[in-house]
Amino acid sequence: MSTIETKKVKFSVFRFNADEDYLPYYDEYEMEVTSEEVVLDILNRIKWDHDGSFSYRRSCRHGICGACAIKVNGRSTLACKERMFDMIDLFGSELTLDPLSQKRAIKDMIIDKNDFWEKHAAVTPYLVAEIDEHPESENIVTPEEEHRLLDADLCIQCGACHYACPVVEINEEYFGPAAFTAAYRFSADVRDHSENRLKDVNEMGQGVWDCVKCFECAEVCPKEINPIEKITKLHQMAFQEGVAENNVAVRHAVGFKKSIEKRGVLDEGGLVLYSEGPAIVKHIPVALKMFKKGKIQMPWNIPTSKNLDEIKKLVKSSSTVEF
């Protein structure tokens, strides 16, 4: 019989009861962890062997209900899917278990996930379609049309990405990567005719333009859904369907093409001017400081790519949208 490998791990476990505690604290446990175990097994052992009052969410134990997401050493993860030995390989033998969001903690690993669900609801996460109750034939969706959804329909709403997103932490309005994934799933559906969804998710403040492109969401998703890929698609769809508004965020994206077409290389000052318009004045104090240090080039000193004619030609022949 083969022996099961074990490793000793020191766990620091976030404890908090919103009804009783003023501040959270950490309990420490030392355990032998086996190569067979996932993070959820550790949560179970803490509750069953050490402290029956320890609280966490779990249901399916098969990576499908989305209830068990927590953070291990700051990294969002699905407890029932994540292998303990992988965590030890990544972070060593001292591991900290936290809820997905400390400031939303209700009891230990359990958080108030309302903001997540509200944002999900806000992106019209369903098909908007006139359905004939007595159709003469089936509504066929071709495999190609189905492929447009990519894997957005595999989301289990675990919230791992949402609470890993730095913008969600800072900007309360921001819908977040999971809501955008849901928005994409329905906006990419050929049967959908929603008039608001794409506009809503393109609105500044709450929408995709506030994404900092950090790829944290892509990194944590236990379903390997890559939410920022869907965010990029939502940007593109706004242009393709003509709902992109003339605002600083949109001009910032468009400005790259204008600059590249003109000189190949980006004209940094020109991009800021084109994006901001008259609001550029607010950048003057920083610009002056930069100018003094030789960090701003005069228009005649901005380089131009060699063989610019090639670039101009390609911009003409390869553009797929106009704004």
Binding site: Q236, H252, F256, I260, G264, V265, S305, V315, S319, T320
Partner: peptide, 17 residues
Amino acid sequence: EASCCGASHLQDYDEFL
């Protein structure tokens, strides 16, 4: 000869380009 990489913004507008 190189042009700007698009800085992760151009692709939001026109991915193929």
